[in-house]
Computed example of a mutant assay.
Amino acid sequence: MLFSLVSNGTLLTPQDPQPPVPWWSFTKTVLAATALSLVRDGLIRLDDVLAEGPFTLRQLLRHEAGLADYSELADYHAAVARNEAPWSADEMLQRLDANRLRYAPGEGWRYSNVGYLQVARLIERLTGLSLEQALAQRVFDPLDLPHVRLAKNRADLHGVSMGAAVSYDPGWVYHGLLVGPLDHAALCLDRLLSGAFLPQPLLQDMQTAHVLGGPIAGRPWTSPGYALGLMQGGVASGLLLSGHTGAGPGSVIAVYRSVHAGNAASCAVFLEGSDEGAVESEAMKHLLAQINANR
C-alpha cells in the first residue's frame, strides 16, 4: 500500500521520484475540472442542453443524464479478462444501446462511465484539442503537475504499477485513463479544491452533491453522495470527504480531501487488489490523523 499526504497545501510525504500508478476513476475528477474550466471561461454553461444529447453538463458530471454504463455488459468484462483488444467507442455504444436513456435526464441517478466519455468528447469539441492536450493545458500546467499523462495503449503502461493486470489495455477505459505519481494525485485534488483554480460560485457548484442514501456495507461512507466529478459525503470518522475512488483490474486508488476548523488535508492511497473499502478507510485514517495533528 502506498499513500501521499498534503496538509494545508504542503506535501508531507517524501518527494523522491515515485512510480506512476493508474488513477482509474479519479480521472473523472480531472475531466470535471477541465469541463468546469470551460464554464469558467464562458465557453459553455452548466445547464445548457448539449449537442451530445438531451442533457446538460451538470447532469453528465453528476451522473444524472440517464445514460447506462458499459460495466453492465457481461461481454465487456469477459473481453477484458481475455486481454482482448478494446472495442471502438462506437461499437461499445452500439452494444450498450447507449442512445436509449434509462430515465429522463435530471430525474434519477446512475453511475455512468459513458457519461464521462461524453464529457471527454465535449472537451475536445469545445477546445479543438486532443483530450490529452486539453487536460495538460487546462489542469496540469496551471496546477504544476508535470508528470501526469493519458495512457492510450499497452505500451503507455510500461513502468506503471498495475498490480496483477500486467497485460491490461487502457483503451477499455473509454473516457481515458490517467497515470501519474501518487503525490500528483493528492496535490491535484488539493489545488483543485483550494479555491484558486475555480471562482467560488463554480467551486460551490462542483461540491454540491446528489445525496445517495445511507451507509454502504464494507465501506466507510455513512451519507454518500455524488457532486460534479466528486464522490462526496460523510464517513464513519465524522469527516466530510470530497474526492474519488477508482478501481480497475489489479488495483484501487482513493484520493480525498477534508477540511475541519480551517485545516485542510488531502490524501491519495493506492492498493493492489480490489478492496475499495480498504483503500477508502486508509485514506480516511490518514486524513483524520492529520486534521487532529493540526488542531
Rank of each mutant, 00 (worst) to 15 (best):
Y168I: 01
A68V: 12
G163C: 07
L145W: 00
L145I: 02
A98D: 05
R149P: 07
L57P: 00
A74D: 14
D97H: 13
E72Q: 12
R58F: 05
D156N: 02
D69L: 06
D97S: 08
N99K: 14
R100E: 13
L67F: 11
L67D: 03
A85G: 13
R121C: 06
W109L: 02
Y116D: 00
V166I: 15
D69N: 08
N83A: 14
R100L: 09
S71P: 01
Y103L: 09
V160D: 10
S71V: 12
Q137M: 04
E64Q: 15
D156Y: 02
Y116W: 04
A155T: 15
L150Q: 10
D69F: 03
A134G: 12
Y70F: 03
G163N: 14
Q94M: 09
R95I: 08
P170E: 04
N153Q: 15
M162P: 07
L73Q: 02
R100C: 06
V139H: 03
E124C: 09
E72Y: 00
L96E: 00
L93P: 01
T56D: 03
A74H: 12
N113D: 11
R102S: 14
T56K: 03
S161Q: 13
R138V: 10
S71T: 14
P142V: 12
L126S: 02
N113H: 03
G106K: 11
A65D: 13
D75K: 04
M162F: 15
L122N: 03
V80G: 00
R125N: 08
H63V: 11
E84A: 11
G115T: 06
A104W: 06
R58H: 15
T127H: 03
G106Q: 06
D156G: 14
S167F: 13
I123Y: 07
A81H: 11
R138Y: 12
Q137G: 05
V139D: 06
P105L: 06
Y76N: 01
Y76K: 01
A165D: 14
A165T: 15
L122G: 05
S161I: 03
A68N: 12
L73P: 04
V139C: 06
G108C: 00
E72D: 15
R121T: 05
D156V: 02
V80L: 01
L145K: 07
P86G: 11
H158Y: 05
L157E: 10
G66N: 07
T56F: 10
E107F: 09
R58P: 04
V119A: 01
R58C: 07
A98R: 04
E132Y: 02
L60T: 11
L57W: 07
R121H: 09
A85M: 07
Y70E: 09
L126D: 05
W87K: 12
A81P: 03
Y111N: 04
P105R: 03
R100S: 13
G106H: 04
G66K: 07
R82G: 01
A164C: 04
A68S: 15
R121A: 07
A68C: 13
H77V: 00
L150E: 05
A155L: 08
Q133E: 15
S161N: 12
L150P: 06
S71W: 11
V139K: 08
E124R: 13
W87S: 08
N153T: 12
F140D: 14
V148A: 05
H77M: 04
D144Q: 14
E72W: 01
H77W: 14
E132P: 02
A104K: 11
D144L: 13
A98Q: 10
A136H: 13
D156R: 12
G66A: 05
L145V: 10
A81Q: 08
F55I: 04
N83I: 00
Q59R: 03
A74N: 08
